[in-house]
Amino acid sequence: MRYWLFKSEPSVWSWDDQVARGDAGEEWDGVRNYQARNFMREMAVGDRGFFYHSQAARAVVGVVEVCATAHPDSTTEGDRWDCVDIRAVAPLSRPVTLADIKAEPALAEMALVKNSRLSVQPVTPEEWQRVCAMGGIDPDT
């Protein structure tokens, strides 16, 4: 299993929106960055990810699971852009803010810190464990 982080502006697609989709999940569509698209092409069903509210909130708020591998993004014509489907697994007991992450020396190399603009990014197993601990959730959730 691999770990990821999915960023969304809460005014566009929030954790509550994701939860409302239930077990069927939702396409993580609209990504128009080649590196982020390529990360989605690497994902497997069962991979876990952090759901991150960008903009004003700037916090990891939940855990999601990839429930469908990369396929053509339904919001565009052609075959250049792919997306995966994700479903909500569990909220964090307490949000982990970007400030919290930046203050944690063990997370200094996290993609969220180094490349904060990337909307889909990898998370190492060690980062996964640490952020889950900070958020008060079992990393095996």
Rank of each mutant, 00 (worst) to 15 (best):
E65I: 09
A133C: 04
N115L: 01
Q121G: 14
A90P: 04
V12W: 03
G135P: 02
F50N: 02
L112P: 03
V84T: 12
R80K: 13
G49N: 03
E9P: 05
A36P: 09
Y3E: 07
E77T: 13
R130M: 06
F6K: 02
D29E: 15
G25P: 01
S119Q: 01
V19F: 13
N115R: 09
N33T: 02
Y34T: 08
H53Y: 11
G135Q: 02
C67V: 15
L107S: 01
R130A: 10
H71Y: 12
G46K: 04
Q55K: 09
A56V: 14
D16Q: 15
G22L: 03
A56Y: 14
W15R: 13
E27K: 09
W128T: 00
Q129N: 01
S74G: 12
I137L: 13
H71M: 08
T124M: 00
G78C: 05
Q121Y: 03
V31G: 10
R58D: 06
A59S: 15
G136H: 09
D16N: 14
S74Y: 08
A20V: 03
K7T: 10
R21N: 15
N33M: 02
A111Q: 08
V89R: 15
R48T: 02
S8Y: 11
S93A: 15
P139V: 01
N33D: 12
M110G: 01
A133M: 03
A133D: 12
A20E: 07
V19I: 15
T141Q: 13
A70T: 12
S119R: 01
P122Y: 00
V89Q: 08
W28G: 05
D138A: 04
Q18N: 12
S8K: 07
P10Q: 13
P125E: 00
A44W: 10
